[in-house]
Amino acid sequence: MTAAPSTENRVAPVGRVLLGLAGILVLAVAVVADGPVRGTVNALLTLFGSEYLLVAVIGLVAFVVGVAAFVTSREAATQAAPPDPERAVAVPAPGESFDEMAADWRCLLPGAGREHRAAVQERLHRTAVETVAVSDDCARETAARRVAEGTWTADDVAAAYLAEPTDATDATDEEGWFELLVGRQTPTQYRAERTVSAIADVAGVAQRDEGAGEGSEEADGSEEADR
């Protein structure tokens, strides 16, 4: 396929030539019609009192305009930004927004973070109940009871996390705070990951190595917002 120049593009050089011709014409008039130009210069000399002062004023104007041009040159410079085609278009991985929600610093706030912590806990609770109901082939009520009693998993952290009827994460255990203090995870994140692992064990889902998915880019959060 061919890309051709636009009509405007072909017209532009003509305009520039006309402008150049107009400049030459003005210069020619100034040279030929010596009288009016000389009269103007003499009037300016009378106004400023000396030749140096007139030239200095012109020099100062040039200096000020030059400084202004220098200051604005960085912003004025433009350049086309071609696309970045080397890598496949970056989209969030499934579940990435859950990780971000669990790692959100607001989960650390004792009062204001309650809503965030509850959202994480609620989603894990719902998944745990469904998973237990499927793996044990029992009713959801039975599965919910097992989750509430903490008997659905051998993982103490996961069992305790989902057994709590309401958000009680303010009282984070020592292990959770240790994870936070060594700069690895928020307590909510720590508990959520342990709980996901426990659910995956019950569901029979094999997990890949942890951390392999770190460094992923943008996430718009819509995945969970749609729930």
Binding site: A93, P94, G95, E96, S97, F98, D99, E100, A102, R123, L124, T127, A192, E193, V196, S197, I199, A200, V205, A206, Q207, R208, D209, E210, G211, A212, G213
Partner: peptide, 8 residues
């Protein structure tokens, strides 16, 4: 199933 939210 790369751990955490991805496994979920």
């Amino acid at each position: 199933a790369d751990g955490g939210g991805r496994t979920l």
